[in-house]
Amino acid sequence: MKLKIEQLNLSHLISLVAKAVSPRSPKPALSCVKFSAGEEGLILDATDQELWIRSSSKDVEIEYPGEVLVDARLIEEIVKNLPKSDVQIETEENKRVKITCEKSKFELFTQEVEEFPEFKPPNPQFEFDLSPILLRDMLEKVMFSASTDEIMKNLNGVYIEIEGKTIRLISADGFRMALTEKEIATPDIPEQTPYMGFLLSLRSVREISRIIEAGEEEDKMHVIYDGKKIGLELNRTFVITQRIEAEFPDYKKVLPEGFKTKITLPTNTLYQSIKRIGVVAKPGSETIRFDIADNIFQISSTSSDYGNSKEEMSIEKEGDDIAIAFNPRFLLEALSRVDDENVTLSFIGPLSPTQINPATLSDYEFIVMPIRM
Rank of each mutant, 00 (worst) to 15 (best):
L331C: 05
E114N: 11
D86E: 13
L30Y: 10
R203C: 02
E183H: 11
P117N: 10
P256W: 10
S346R: 13
P65V: 10
S204D: 04
E233D: 10
K141N: 13
K80C: 00
E163T: 09
L232F: 13
I277F: 07
N327V: 07
L42V: 09
P353V: 11
P358Y: 04
D48P: 10
A72W: 06
D219C: 05
E316T: 14
K19M: 06
Y251W: 14
P187S: 12
K98W: 00
S300V: 11
D339M: 08
D149V: 03
T100G: 01
V17N: 08
E216V: 08
K228M: 10
P187I: 08
P117R: 10
G284K: 10
M369W: 02
I99G: 03
E163I: 11
S285N: 10
A20S: 14
E76A: 15
G164L: 05
E217Y: 11
G164V: 05
R54E: 12
A20Q: 06
I212W: 03
P190T: 05
N154Q: 13
E102A: 10
S104D: 06
E181D: 12
D339H: 08
V343S: 02
S36Y: 02
V60M: 07
V239H: 07
E286W: 04
S147E: 00
A146H: 03
S147W: 00
M143G: 01
G174R: 03
V239F: 10
I211S: 09
N357E: 15
L82K: 06
S309G: 13
I78S: 07
S11V: 01
A185I: 11
K310S: 15
N156L: 00
K262G: 01
I75T: 07
I277T: 13
E102V: 13
V87P: 07
E245D: 15
I162P: 04
Q125A: 02
A146M: 07
V68S: 06
S204L: 05
L155V: 00
Y64K: 13
E115Y: 01
M196I: 14
P83Q: 09
R73H: 12
